[in-house]
């Protein structure tokens, strides 16, 4: 079984926000009303964090794209009371919108604040409804949602590979964010495959994972030159 993982090269990443937009478009993420957005109910599966280091004027700003980390040891799935979030065999942490009862325990348990909640029924102007991605289901009010590593794409990729009677090649399956990154800072692949780029990069001396001390084993690996 492959184990899908993402590597984000923070040295390359400019923080342009393309991954956020690609994600919103691909996954039919609702756009909440402006008032809602500014009280912290904005929905980004791929979020952008800004960190500051140093003293003015020698200040360094780093922007860190933050998807769901698809932990190998996810704290969120342990607390779900109804199996609405779970980890599958390939290491993807999924969210079942139709089963979620909206207790938000998983959001509370996630140390990375990676999940978002539908506080109101997501709404689109009728015109925009025609350009929704048919591969991704729409969420309803009162459920938790999060980055799925574009799992719907995996299904297609698998199907293609299956039809052509071959294995999935490295880089064939990539989430929307990695696909459009203008600096190719987001890599995606099977980290169990020693030949994959993701595996090689994860062995880099620059690699680190967020809050490794928690033992969550995130499958999103950051690369950053430590200075």
């Amino acid at each position: 079984m492959p184990k899908w993982a993402m590597v984000i090269d923070l040295d390359k990443c400019t923080g342009c926000g393309d991954c956020m937009a690609a994600c919103k478009l691909e996954n039919n993420i609702a756009i909440v009303s402006p008032e809602e957005a500014n009280v912290g109910r904005v929905m980004f599966w791929m979020d952008m964090i800004t960190t500051y280091e140093g003293e003015y004027p020698n200040i360094k700003v780093k922007r860190i794209p933050k998807p769901c980390f698809h932990c190998d040891n996810p704290p969120c799935t342990r607390v779900c009371p109804v199996y609405a979030t779970y980890k599958n065999d390939e290491g993807l942490v999924g969210q079942i919108y139709h089963r979620c009862i909206g207790c938000r325990y998983c959001m509370v348990a996630c140390p990375y604040t990676a999940k978002v909640f539908n506080w109101y029924e997501p709404k689109w102007p009728d015109e925009f409804k025609s350009c929704l991605n048919p591969d991704v289901s729409l969420r309803m009010v009162g459920v938790v949602e999060k980055c799925s590593f574009c799992a719907h794409r995996l299904i297609k990729v698998k199907e293609n590979a299956d039809m052509e009677e071959r294995e999935i090649y490295d880089g064939e399956y990539s989430p929307a964010c990695g696909e459009s990154c203008p600096t190719n800072a987001i890599y995606f692949g099977d980290i169990d495959n020693k030949e994959s780029q993701v595996y090689k990069l994860s062995q880099s001396s620059r690699s680190y994972r967020e809050m490794e001390n928690l033992g969550t084993e995130p499958k999103v690996i950051y690369l950053s030159k430590r200075e």
Binding site: G17, D18, A21, K24, L25, F128, S180, C181, N184
Partner: peptide, 12 residues
Amino acid sequence: GGMCPSGHSALE
């Protein structure tokens, strides 16, 4: 293959 955020919102 790169994009910027506003390119993605072209459908809007």
